[in-house]
Amino acid sequence: MLRYLYADQLKNFPKLRDSMFRDRTDQFHNRLGWDVSVDENGFETDEYDTENPLYVIWEMPDGTHGGSMRFLPTTGKVMVNDHFAHVMGGGAVVSPLIWECTRFCLKQGALAQVAAALMLAGGEIMQGLGIVQFVGVFDARMVRIYRMTGASPEVLGSVGEGRDQISVGLWDFTPQAKEQVMRKCGITAQQSRAWFDAAFGHAADNTNAALKAIA
């Protein structure tokens, strides 16, 4: 299932949290060879994890991590502005309607469906929360995998060469892409919406229910 969790909510899901940070080590440190910090628990974390970001996580049936990504609004501290401003032509991208998406991670051996499910979640956030665009930092070698999901980022620029190449790009989730992504991951619009609602509250009329209860 898809979970949308802020960092301060991860404590309620220790198994999911620990396996996510270990899978991040496996992907970014071991497989992609990025220069990232891994702590004594084998967790890959960076300074942006302490900004109470929103994580979107694919939870496996056994409660462990299958894939994830991390969001922060560009009005605060974000990687694109702190480290990749030159890729964007200099200067900062700042808007509460543009969020940064980083640490797009897939557990080793995860099916393309997991990547597609995460793309679907990105679409739910745009549609449900009024976000216009995601700007992301990712490894150019992952683009092929993203493309298989039906939604792939548009690369704005890259730094480094070969193995060390890190790209900045835009993730877009058009209604057409949504159809394709849903087919890829085999998740219905209703199911996806139900997971989103489970995280952000049901649109059911809680306030009216509360008023009725006291009446």
Partner: peptide, 20 residues
């Protein structure tokens, strides 16, 4: 500690204190 906009209907009003 959040950064997404919220419709009040989606909040948790279930406690007695919140209702009052």
């Amino acid at each position: 500690q959040r950064f997404h906009p919220v419709d009040w209907k989606r909040l948790d009003w279930s406690s007695k204190a919140a209702r009052q």
